[in-house]
Amino acid sequence: MIINHPLLGPRDAQEFVYLGDASLIDRPDVNAETALEDFHDYLYLRDNPAGSHKELWFHEQGDRAWLVVTRDMTTHEITDVELASDYAKRRGRDR
């Protein structure tokens, strides 16, 4: 596959390491009352869509940026790629 890196352009997927669902960015609050259940769901419950899926790829042999790649699981078509740090900030992650 080819991943169109937002900064470096099209790169071979061989340069990347796959992690999984981009929902891993939405890490629950450790201090919530329901933290144990929240973390259980966060870590073990995943959607497995036959279609568009946001997922995390690490450009290990490139610029070491984590990317959020939107890929169709049935065709491998990639419709969007962005820096995970931008995506994470948009999802409210900070410090």
Partner: peptide, 19 residues
Amino acid sequence: AVSVFRHMEFCRQCLWPGL
């Protein structure tokens, strides 16, 4: 060595990008 660095970058870029 490699996987820990990858994990730390995940923490830095994806979980605490404001640090």
